[in-house]
Every structure is written in C-alpha cells, then in structure tokens.
Amino acid sequence: MMDHAITLLLLTLAAGTPLVFAALGELVTEKSGVLNLGVEGMMLVGAVVAFIVATTSQSPWLGVAAGMAGGAALSLVFAIVTLSLHANQVASGLALSLFGIGLSAFIGLDYVSVIIEPIRPLTVHGLPDIPVVGVLLFGHNPLVYLSLALFAAIQWFLSRTRAGLVLRAVGESPQSAHAIGISVVRIRYLAVLFGGACAGLGGAYLSLVYSPSWAEGMTSGRGWIALALVVFANWKPWRVLAGAYLFGGVTLAQFQAQGMGVELPSQYLAMLPYIATIVVLAIISRNAAVIKQNAPASLGRPFHPEG
C-alpha cells in the first residue's frame, strides 16, 4: 500500500510538471495584464523545437533551451500583434494557437519517426535507495526539480522584488504605471516572452521526458488546461503548483481505480476539475477584496499611453 502511495505521488508529480511550467509562465504574463490564449500552440512549438535540436545536437539540455527559445519566439509574434499593433488579445491568442499547432506539425514532419534518448532521472548514487524518503526526494527527473525551482523563483520575484512589484503595477493599472514613468509596453513584452519560454519548456518536458518522441498535437490539450489552472489558482503561484498536481492526480487516481476494477464513469471525473474551477472562481470572486488582491485588473485590455 505504501508502495502504491509513493508511486502515485511520483507519477502525479511527473504528470503535473508540464502544467506547472506552462501555467506559471501564463501566470506571469497575466499578472502584467495580458491574456495569451496561445499556450497550446507555444507548448507544441516548444516540444517540436526541443525535440529537433536534441536529436540533431545529441544534447537534450540544448534541446530544452531551444524549446524555451521556440516558445518565446512564437510568443513574440503575439506580443508584436497585441502590444505594438493593439490587436484584440483573445482573438490573437486563439489565432496564435492555430498557427502554432500548424507550424509545429509542419516543421516536425521529418521527425515523427526519430527515436531519442530521454532525459533520465538523476541518479545520485545510493540516495534514491533510502526507503520512502529517498525516492520521494531524489527519484525525480531533473526537469521536475527545475519546475519547483521555477515556482520558488516566481513566488519570490512577485512578492519580494521591486521588478515583481512593477510587473503587478502594470497589470493592475497600466495608466498609473505609465504616469510614474514605467514603460508598460516593455514590461508586457518581457512578461509575454517569459510566458512563451515557460510554455516552450512545458512542451520540451513532454517531448524529451514524459513521452520522448514527437507526434503532431502531442500536448493533447494541456495548454488549455494550463490556462484554466491559472484562474483556478486565483493567480497565486503556490496554488498553480497544487492545482497542477490536482489536475494530473485526478486522472491518475481514476486510472488506479480502473486498474483495481472499480468502475467510475470517466467523463464525470474528467468534468470535475472544470466544474471545480468554476465553483472556486465564483466563490473567490464573490469576495471582491480577495479577487482584487490577485486578479490583474487590466487583464485582456489593450494599453496605449494616449488612449
């Protein structure tokens, strides 16, 4: 039983990790007041670029870096269209997803049959063999640790640094931020690029670690779930983390039950996270003070200093 619990925990962490990357990135983007619905496209581009670079360079870590660059490059398109050219963010984000899905499939055509050596879990000699704690602390993939580090960094950045404060100010009230001399557009560009890089990293995790291969549409909607997650988390990093593991864990728990012969209608279970998100959202937004603290007030609104 203990073994089961540990395995389930390990699997849950592994399943939640791509969501952690993508959702944390989107959180930072949204904190600056920009809603980028193109996460699915950016993840896919990240996945394919990471895969191509990792196979041609034989260096998975170079692949990870390239995946981030790929995601960021795609988000740059979004940034130019929405921030410099003032197009609607919702429509542009959806168009970006369409574009990213097509682009990734297109550049990945010659790589669908390529085999890759995945990034393996760290094996610090002997450590994972310590009962229970060993596996839980040392048995993960390096990218899982990276996702936790990213979480800590973002948490610290948003709550403890001046730059984090500036980012939040831009998302809260771009007009006042502009008035005190902050370059709103520059900050938003950086936030969008960061979000793109994180989504690309989530994609790289999928193609290099989680199911090491490239196939069209291999993210299977995880980008959309990441979007839901940010809201579910009420724009708090630690809740993104918890939510990602919850989303990943629900599926796994359902699989565990199935394997043991317990019948649960999968559609009801699959609905749960979305319904839970709506309920949580409704409850937190009833309390205006809570939502005000966290949700960026200018989310989705274009900004131009003169109008």
Binding site: T251, F255, G259
Partner: peptide, 22 residues
Amino acid sequence: IWVSAWFDPGKESEAANTLISQ
C-alpha cells in the same frame, strides 16, 4: 485502463505506469 482517447501519448504513458505500479 480506458484512457478515453485514441491518441494521447501523455495519458497512455500514465495508464501504462499505473498498470506497472499495480
């Protein structure tokens, strides 16, 4: 284990992992 998808590498490997754990 029913994964409710013909193609979803992530879910398929989760299901496979679950089966191995059992």
